[in-house]
Design a protein around this nucleic acid. Sequence first.
DNA 1: ACATTATGTCAATGACACTTTACATAACCA
DNA 2: TGGTTATGTAAAGTGTCATTGACATAATGT
Lengths: 63, 63
Amino acid sequence: MKNRLKVLRAERDWSQATLAEQLDVSRQTINAIETGKYDPSLPLAFKFATLFGCTIEEIFQPE
Amino acid sequence: MKNRLKVLRAERDWSQATLAEQLDVSRQTINAIETGKYDPSLPLAFKFATLFGCTIEEIFQPE
DNA sequence: ACATTATGTCAATGACACTTTACATAACCA
DNA sequence: TGGTTATGTAAAGTGTCATTGACATAATGT
């Protein structure tokens, strides 16, 4: 699963820690997802979409 | 997480087993997701969307 | 030079996603 | 009545998601 988190974060000038805080997850979770170590759960994917104001499909794409 | 799987299945007259087969998961997984026991992984959510020809958001909605 | 921030990574742990095998029930039909 | 299909559920096992705490490195600012 690919994702555009790094870009979306950069557009807002947010650190991984800042993003983690807003989503109520750990910084390591953000880092792991961003670097492709694992995929977020579906509920967390929805949280990303809500926070960034776009659809899940606009953030995550299956390989 | 709510979902419209039962309706989407009914529209196509598919059993849980038929759907499971097409998604390459077990029938119990379909049943568990449909009855809200747990949420699908993000990759599986994408598979549902692809198969039904719609977006993840059109199938699943956070509570 | 020193402190701070951002990122990457590791180990250990608990919770959840998904599996197989199996049993039960209800509906349908020959 | 007996066979088949659809659905729900349970137990036990495996792998993945997400956690905390910790350590390392690079970049920035004072």
